[in-house]
Structures are given as structure tokens and as C-alpha cells.
């Protein structure tokens, strides 16, 4: 299960992509995230695990300011992306989200063609000047999303007509088409069957070469399979954060141990 020890030894030399310090999140009067500080490395898959309602998705959505769309949500503390505070008033969340892409729990392709799904991001960010360039970006993204072979003959058919696993890979391809630096994934496999899950996990592992990937998951096996770093959240607190192999074999905190052995959650 934990079969990549040689890789983990080199992890600590990697650059810090996102540094969060003392992050607090409130939903109205509810204190949802308490004092979370975490450093996310570049070219690494970081998994957030924890029982339902522990705040891992909330924290993930802080990283590209998707929480801004929720009126009652308030974020305090500091989150630095490449040493720039993303909550600085001068930062436009729209620009931030082009850098920090997101894949959601439920596959949510636009009800448009497969081509238009991928091309939308590059179009609004002006990444392609000609139709040929756009075609190239679409093909490249679909290849990186490991779905090109399945859809190359029907790029004009609607994205909503694909199977669940294909839709999710399409959404991943759509997210990477805008050339983000960080990819946030909020339980990307929860709506997928085991075969589709395996495909997506394989894809995540490949994406690590180019992106910093943060994935929220309910499945500890998945966290163990795809991630190099794991953060365990419980009741809004970040309980433990470290190398995945260490978290799953020798957890420091008793709560982490209880959770991964199935006693709480």
C-alpha cells in the first residue's frame, strides 16, 4: 500500500507553493476552521483527510477563494501563494482562480460540446490567438486529462453525454487547459465507480509532474495511493500533517490513529 518510500525522502527539498498561517474560517457564527497552518509543496500530491464536516473542503476552497461566493463566509489569517497573499485586497480572485484551478466533487461539465468545455478557459484568458492554437490546447489538455483517445472522434458532441468517469476527466482536462500552477480537487472520485476512480488516480499521479495537486478525499486508501503528503482535519482543526507514509504507519496524534483505524469518523 505504501510503496513509494524512495520518493518521499526527496520531498522535503521541494519548494513551498502555498503557505497558510493561522487561517480561520467562519460561516456566520460558526467557527469552521480554527488556526490552520500548513505548507503545501510544489510538484506534490497533498491529501486532506478527515471525517465529514471537519472543514477540509472549506479549507480547500479558501485556497482559490471560492468561499468568496458564499455571502456569510469570512476568512481570516494569511495564505501565501508563491509568497503573495491571496487575500490581499489588491488581488483579483478571478486572476487567482486562473492560477489555482479546481475540480469539483460532482462532475460538472458545461452543457456544451466537449471542445467548448475545454476551450472556454483558454478563451476567456486569451491563451490562444488563433483557432489552430486553440485546437492544439484542446488536444493537449485532453491528452493530459487521459481522455483524448476516448473523445477525439466526437469533440462536438455534448460533454454531458459522457459517462461519469469520463465527465470527471473532462473536468480535470478543462481545469488544466488554463495552465494553472495548483490544482485543487474536492473529492473528485466520490461519484465514480472503482474503474473510473483508478483512471482518475493514475491521472493525478501524472499531473504531479507539472502541478501542485491538493486533493480532498474520504477514502484513506485513495489518500495512501495517490498522495505524498497528508493532512488530517478534525472538527475544524488541522490535527496532523506529514508524509503520507508516516501518517498512515506511525501517526503522532491519537485522534489520527483512531480515524485511520476506523474508530472515529
Amino acid at each position: 500500500m505504501y510503496d513509494a518510500p524512495s520518493l518521499e525522502n526527496t520531498l522535503d527539498q521541494k519548494a513551498i507553493k502555498i503557505a497558510a498561517t493561522d487561517v480561520q474560517v467562519y460561516y456566520g457564527d460558526t467557527h469552521a476552521i480554527k488556526d490552520v497552518s500548513v505548507q503545501i509543496q510544489d510538484n506534490t500530491v497533498t491529501a486532506f483527510i478527515g471525517p465529514s464536516g471537519c472543514g477540509k473542503s472549506t479549507f480547500l476552497r479558501c485556497l482559490n477563494r471560492m468561499n468568496d461566493t458564499i455571502d456569510i463566509c469570512r476568512v481570516e489569517g494569511k495564505i501565501l501563494l508563491d509568497n503573495e497573499d491571496i487575500y490581499d485586497p489588491k488581488v483579483d480572485p478571478v486572476q487567482l482562480r486562473a492560477k489555482v484551478g479546481m475540480v469539483f466533487q460532482k462532475p460538472n461539465p458545461f452543457p456544451k460540446s466537449i471542445y467548448d468545455n475545454i476551450a472556454y478557459g483558454p478563451k476567456i484568458h486569451g491563451l490562444a490567438r488563433t483557432k489552430a492554437e486553440l485546437d492544439e490546447i484542446v488536444e493537449k489538455s485532453l491528452r493530459r486529462g487521459a481522455i483524448w483517445d476516448e473523445v477525439k472522434d466526437r469533440l462536438q458532441s455534448p460533454g454531458t453525454g459522457l459517462s461519469g468517469g469520463q465527465q470527471q476527466r473532462l473536468c480535470i482536462a478543462r481545469a488544466i487547459a488554463t495552465e494553472p500552477e495548483v490544482l485543487l480537487m474536492d473529492e473528485p472520485c466520490s461519484a465514480l465507480d472503482p474503474i473510473a476512480t483508478a483512471q482518475v488516480e493514475e491521472l493525478i499521479d501524472e499531473l504531479r509532474a507539472n502541478f501542485s495537486v491538493v486533493i480532498v478525499t474520504h477514502s484513506m486508501q485513495q489518500a495512501a495511493r495517490v498522495s505524498q503528503k497528508t493532512a488530517f482535519f478534525h472538527l475544524g482543526n488541522l490535527v496532523e500533517y506529514g508524509d503520507t507514509s508516516q501518517i498512515f504507519t506511525t501517526p503522532v496524534d491519537p485522534r489520527t490513529e483512531s480515524y485511520i483505524t476506523g474508530r472515529i469518523g
Binding site: 461566493t69 482562480r97 476567456i124 488554463t178
Partner: peptide
């Protein structure tokens, strides 16, 4: 759908 668009930086 809104999330998808916003998540892409729209």
C-alpha cells in the same frame, strides 16, 4: 455550473 465557470477563472 456557476462553480465550474468561477473555478476556471471566469
Amino acid at each position: 455550473i456557476r462553480d465550474a465557470a468561477l473555478g476556471l477563472g471566469a
